[in-house]
Computed example of a mutant assay.
Amino acid sequence: MFSLVVDALQPQTWLESRVYQLLELHDIRQPEDIQLTELCLAYGIELWDIDGRSRAHPHPFLPDRFVIAVDQRLSVPERREKIAHELGHLLLHEGIQPWSGETMIGMQEAQANHFAEHLLLPYPMFVPLLDHCTRYEAPSLLASAFRVPLSLAQKRFDRLLGRMYAKGHPVIW
């Protein structure tokens, strides 16, 4: 299977290549290395538990610092997805931009979602995990290994299959 996906593993967008550079910079090479708390600390971002909608905002006491407030009622996989999404906003969009128009907000939300996908489920880490499973087992295996919601793992796996198909590889696994 490795030979079939090697082309699909290469970054295909600016955002994907930047996230992979971020992973390399922080020596993140295995799913268990994706420690969002440590990554946030590296950028001076505090994580706060709240009861309510997760969000990123300027730190109330420290200038030029930010907070990611995460709904503590979420499961661990859902929390990881929210933290990665909000981290994407802070790293890509330079913090909060409250006066953006509808179109800009939609674009920023899409970018933050893609950032979270690339950060939490980087394709190069898929190969050792998927080498000995069926395509039907793959999403739940990825969700477990990367500690993300099954829906996110399914979406990311479907994108991998789409890339393989677009590269002309038969998706018969």
Rank of each mutant, 00 (worst) to 15 (best):
L91E: 00
Q111Y: 07
P60H: 11
P170S: 09
V171Q: 01
V19N: 05
V148W: 02
A56E: 08
L4P: 07
R135H: 15
R80F: 06
A42H: 13
E137Q: 15
I83C: 01
D131A: 13
E94K: 12
E137A: 12
E117L: 08
V6F: 06
W173Y: 07
H132W: 07
P128Y: 06
W173Q: 02
N113G: 05
G52M: 03
Q111W: 02
L92W: 00
V70H: 01
P170K: 08
R159V: 04
L9M: 06
S75F: 04
G162F: 04
E81F: 09
R163S: 02
L150H: 14
L22R: 13
F126C: 11
E137S: 14
Q108E: 11
E24H: 15
E137V: 12
A116H: 00
E86V: 06
L39A: 06
D131I: 14
V6C: 08
Q35F: 07
F61V: 12
H169W: 14
V5G: 06
E38I: 14
V70T: 05
S100P: 04
E32C: 00
F61S: 14
Q72N: 08
E16Q: 10
S144P: 02
I172L: 09
L87M: 08
G52A: 01
F61K: 14
V19T: 11
S144H: 13
R65T: 10
L119R: 10
L160P: 05
A56W: 05
V127I: 13
L121H: 04
S100T: 10
V148G: 05
P128W: 04
E16K: 09
R156A: 11
H93V: 04
A8H: 03
A143W: 02
V70N: 03
R18E: 11
D51Q: 14
S3M: 11
P149D: 00
C40T: 12
G88M: 04
L160S: 01
I83N: 04
P122H: 08
P139G: 12
L120C: 09
L142G: 10
R147I: 15
L121M: 11
S151R: 08
L9C: 10
F66E: 00
H85L: 01
D158M: 01
S100I: 09
H89W: 07
T103D: 12
L39C: 09
D27S: 14
E16P: 05
A84Q: 03
S144Y: 13
D158W: 00
I34R: 05
R135N: 14
A84K: 07
Y20G: 12
A110K: 13
S100Q: 13
R147G: 04
L15T: 09
L91Y: 03
L47F: 10
H89A: 03
G168W: 05
T37H: 14
Q10Y: 08
F157M: 07
Y43M: 08
L130H: 07
V171H: 02
I45K: 02
H132D: 10
E46T: 10
H118I: 06
S54C: 02
G52E: 01
Q97R: 13
R80G: 01
I96P: 00
L47G: 09
H114W: 12
L9A: 08
I50A: 08
H26A: 00
L150D: 06
I172G: 01
Q111E: 13
L9I: 08
E78V: 04
Q30C: 09
P98Y: 06
K155A: 04
R79K: 14
E24C: 11
L92R: 14
A56R: 12
V70F: 02
D158R: 05
G88C: 07
D7H: 01
E117K: 09
R18W: 08
H57I: 03
